[in-house]
């Protein structure tokens, strides 16, 4: 058996090792590849740019820590952008393991921009059954959230006093790793008429382009790429930004090239093996003819 024919039987662990190396190396030696921006990301960025100070955006943390690699930079980008433009922010964390993570991200960003809890932002926290919570907000924030995350009744929070339901906010941004993103579109947008933008993992994005094309959402951040573009736009607008998602795109570039290389090598092996099988079949036929 030649080397090429052995390829299909290559130990998976070799592939895994190569993937790991390709992920780690660019972390230490950044390539600094340029980030072109796309319309769907610009959609959300421009929407928030156009909102004046004092408008209100609801940022929904609809992801658990496992996808923080993709969703984290998205959430923090949107949060910082709002703070930078003095837009008020309400935050929900409807995913089970989101509250602690969200709390840390909010408090860090708030400290950076000198934002005051209850005046510039309000962290509503977690309630079970996301779809029901999203529907109930349509009637009143106080139905699912009688208090904020810290236990303060909503009516004692200056920012929330005049906020009843979706009519009193300008935009919902759902940063999501699952179906909750869809519930915001179904209920907040379609039922209660509040504008919605989504920031989702790369895998989910393929599905949510339908909402973007049907103009059901004002913007879409697909995966780390979306987060990187968002940071690039913040950088372009002279705001403070973080490097991490941009560097992540270097890693992703290398990984994609590597996987393409795997596909090519896999196909070379596939054709080599098919050629061998054909040769053997031909030889067997010739042998049978010889016997006759």
């Amino acid at each position: 058996m030649s080397f090429l024919e052995k390829i299909p039987r290559l130990d998976r662990r070799v592939l895994y090792l190569l993937v790991a190396i390709a992920a780690v190396v660019p972390m230490f030696t950044p390539l600094g590849l340029p980030i072109p921006t796309s319309r769907e990301v610009e959609g959300l960025f421009d929407y928030i740019e156009e909102l004046g100070p004092g408008s209100t955006v609801l940022v929904a943390f609809d992801f658990d820590p496992q996808t923080v690699g993709e969703n984290g930079p998205q959430a923090s980008g949107v949060l910082r952008h709002c703070f930078e433009r003095d837009v008020n922010v309400l935050i929900t964390a409807l995913s089970q393991n989101a509250p602690g993570m969200a709390q840390e991200m909010i408090e860090t960003a708030a400290a950076e921009y000198d934002k005051v809890n209850g005046v510039d932002f309000c962290y509503l926290g977690y309630q079970p059954y996301p779809a029901i919570v999203i529907m109930s907000i349509g009637q009143n924030f106080r139905i699912p959230f009688p208090q904020d995350f810290y236990g303060t009744p909503l009516d004692s929070i200056p920012l929330m006093r005049a906020k009843q339901n979706y009519d009193d906010i300008d935009l919902v941004v759902s940063v999501a790793a699952g179906w909750v993103a869809e519930s915001w579109v179904t209920y907040a947008k379609e039922r209660y008429g509040c504008d919605v933008a989504l920031a989702v993992t790369a895998v989910q994005a393929a599905q949510y382009y339908t909402f973007w094309n049907a103009q059901q959402i004002v913007g879409l951040l697909p995966g780390l790429k979306g987060a990187a573009e968002y940071q690039a736009m913040m950088k372009g607008a002279g705001m403070s930004y973080t490097d991490a998602p941009l560097r992540g795109m270097d890693v992703q570039s290398i990984e994609h090239l590597l996987i393409i290389a795997f596909i090519v090598v896999g196909n070379v092996g596939f054709f080599a093996e098919r050629a061998r099988q054909r040769r053997e079949a031909a030889a067997a036929r010739a042998e049978r003819r010889g016997e006759r």
Partner: peptide, 9 residues
Amino acid sequence: VDRARVEGG
């Protein structure tokens, strides 16, 4: 749209 509002409970 003039609608009922609840504030401060």
